[in-house]
Design a protein around this nucleic acid. Structure first.
Lengths: 159, 159
DNA sequence: CCTGAAAACTTACTAGG
DNA sequence: CCTAGTAAGTTTTCAGG
């Protein structure tokens, strides 16, 4: 479960986050090591689950996903059965890119990516017909100022 | 700018989103084509900017990022100068993973990933000392129910 | 935990239908 | 737009310090 991440591991993770298509030689050069040790460390980090999915980020707008909504949900239901059903509904809907259970006043927040406002409405109608929710506020994004999957690993540098 | 995405392109994008470490042969087999055409299409899609960064997703919790906040910001400032400054501050802070300008009542939403509540407070203090904002609400995530970067490309299947 | 080398595989490109 | 072929590059494994 717990793997000690040393400075070299951290640098490797920084490089892989930045550009996972680099060759081992490139990564090794950047982190000041060589091929085999870097390969062994990456294997260890994958095995430990620190390194997960390798993916490409696509241009959502160019592909016709022109609307992003953040959805704030309040519910009066707090039974286990209801929650199980609700979480499954979220996981099964591919337009839900993120879903978090929150502390406090608002119970859940979703990030929903759809083609347009009409597609959002279809999503919303389907969701509320599937599970009872008390109050829903949709926030429409006008502009994506920043979007990154990179963790700020610099924050770990002094460990 | 605009590239026509056909059914084969769409399937290639689905595969690359799912697992970008697959070889051309694997992808070709899955989409029902062969190496060279797939290679040419990927090159075209990269050139057009449809395919962007290739990255790995890391286990944030295992790396000690135990707190995620969604931050709702209202501001009274709407001058170009203020906005430019604010956007730069967001882009420069690595703990801000997402930032959107919104329509309506709330002006901005951020997703902020930090080690703990103390680190969030440090971020918050730094931000409000740099730019004037009228009202800030922080929503603390208790549980990440779902998190994906994958676009629901199935929605494009019938085009 | 490292270096260095070798085998297997993959990518990037070309020629030709 | 495809199939087939190939040279260069890359990953993966392993022997040895």
């Amino acid at each position: 479960m717990s793997v000690r991440i040393d400075e070299t591991d951290r640098k490797i993770l920084v490089e892989l986050q930045r550009d996972a298509s680099q060759s081992l030689d490139e990564i090794a050069a950047r982190v000041g090591s060589s091929k085999t040790p870097v390969w062994n460390r990456i294997r260890k980090l994958k095995g430990a689950g620190i390194i997960g999915q390798q993916t490409v980020l696509l241009d959502a707008e160019a592909l016709g996903f022109e609307a992003t909504f953040f959805v704030l949900i309040r519910t009066s239901e707090h039974e286990a059965e209801w929650q199980k059903h609700f979480l499954k509904a979220l996981r099964d809907r591919p337009e839900v890119q993120e879903a978090h259970r929150l502390a406090g006043d608002i119970d859940y927040i979703l990030k929903v990516r759809v083609k347009n406002a009409r597609a959002y409405d279809a999503f919303y109608q389907a969701l509320i017909s599937e599970v009872r929710v008390y109050n829903v506020t949709a926030l429409l994004s006008m502009e994506e100022i920043k979007s990154t999957t990179m963790l700020p690993l610099d924050a770990l540098a002094e460990n």
